[in-house]
Amino acid sequence: MKDIFTEVITNEVVHRINTLTPKTQGNWGKMSVSQMLAHCCVTYEMVYTDKHQKPNGFVKLMLKLFVKNAVVSEKPFSKNGKTAPQFIISDEREFETEKKRLIDFIVKTQELGGNYFKDKESHSFGKLTTVEWNNSFYKHLDHHLNQFGV
């Protein structure tokens, strides 16, 4: 898996995002490109804000047991997979605003670096290793950028 904590990979991902336009169509799924950008921001909102309510102990345990590995492993996400409710963006979003938010989150994450994330508590899965954080960040971005052909 590519390392999102390196400047080279961050720049590569940002370049891919910058090739999107408000009219870019997805190759699968129902989201518009603006909704996809907002959807990708949710991962970072869960790290850097209190916008999303944390799951209770039982739900967190179930997420750790049944969802965590799919998110943090190197196995790619499948097309049209089930989306967690907090990641569903049903309203239309402003393309440039969401693009800037996502790029800012990605750059902030790279600047903080892998050591910042070592054993950091995730919103839904408990403590994650740096590799698990990297896989969850990069794999999600790569999946949706591929969805939109970039």
Results as ranks from 00 to 15, higher is better:
N56S: 15
F5H: 02
R93Q: 08
V67Q: 14
H143Q: 03
F66T: 01
V131Y: 07
I103M: 05
K23P: 11
D91I: 09
Q86V: 12
L61T: 15
G149E: 01
V72A: 01
P76Y: 02
F148G: 01
E111Y: 09
V131C: 09
A70M: 15
D142V: 03
E45I: 03
S78Q: 14
H143K: 02
V67G: 03
R93N: 04
Y138K: 04
K2D: 14
V14Q: 06
F105T: 05
T83N: 03
N135K: 05
K60V: 14
V42H: 01
K23T: 13
F117A: 03
S32V: 04
A38G: 04
Y138T: 02
Y48A: 08
E7L: 12
S90A: 06
A70P: 02
N146I: 08
F95T: 00
N27P: 07
H15K: 13
K100S: 10
S122W: 01
K100D: 14
K30H: 07
Y48K: 00
K23Y: 11
K120M: 04
N69P: 01
K118F: 09
H15F: 06
Y116L: 06
N134G: 04
F58A: 14
F87K: 00
C41N: 10
H15C: 13
P22Y: 02
F87A: 01
E96D: 10
K60D: 15
L37V: 04
L65Y: 04
G81L: 13
V107M: 10
V67A: 14
L145V: 00
K118P: 08
S124M: 14
S124G: 10
H39S: 00
H39N: 00
N56P: 03
K23C: 14
D91K: 14
E45H: 03
G81Q: 11
Q147D: 10
F95K: 00
K139Y: 06
T97A: 10
K79Q: 12
K51R: 12
P85Q: 07
G57C: 11
V8I: 13
F87R: 00
K54C: 02
S124V: 05
Q25W: 04
L112E: 09
S136M: 09
K51V: 05
